[in-house]
Design a binder for these strands. Sequence first.
DNA 1: ATGGTAGAGGATCTA
Length: 255
Amino acid sequence: MTKIATWNVNSLRVRLPQVLDWLGTNQPDILALQETKLLDENFPQGEIEAAGYQVAYAGQKAYNGVALLSRSAATDIIRDIDGLDDDQRRVLFATCDRLRVLNVYVPNGENVESDKYQYKLTWLKKLTGYIRQQLVAHDRLVVLGDFNIAPEPRDVYDPELLEGQVLFSVPERTAFRTLLDTGLSDTFRLFNQEDKQYTWWDYRMMAFRRNRGLRIDHILASETLSKACVSCTIDKEPRRWERPSDHAPVIAEFR
DNA sequence: ATGGTAGAGGATCTA
């Protein structure tokens, strides 16, 4: 069994003790992190290796940044995807435990009128083209991370209020659907799930206490891997901790 | 009254 997880930590510097605690409790084989917000020279490699995990990372100053923590060594590591043409550190692609793993931090988009929203849609289109190519070569592909898109009305706390807003606009949801149509499954929806399960809650307005959240962090699997997927769950526990990330981890297991 | 909170970095920008 291979256990793989994703977690937007919103600063690895601040969240490192929580990440180490969570690794000890949950023992994943692979953990994909987003928003590390660290230069590579400041990555806490020693502390993570001391906890029994190897690391690969692609960071930058202040914003973005992704990392892959794994029990086994990751190989064939790619930090710059062909055709993405992006200076921001948002992707990390590697092979680990017989999986081809693509860790993504999709642009937030800010709001639907913003230039950053167009950047998000263009970025997703380029990523989708790349994934379409990669699925030809890799039948055991996992794409996971913070997609900054809630795919369906049941993935947001108030679909009427949020309709047309960033993270839940029709063009974003269509882009997500197009990505799945390359041959990926949203592993969370392979299983019967309780209602009102989310992965992100705004820090403001007591959103977590009121469960005003969105499901925007996902683990997508190729057809071969979908058949081998036995669970996908959201761990809300770290969101309850003192000084938490605004995102909860998502965990999938593969036979 | 365009809020409210968090992180980075040292004034705003991003989410």
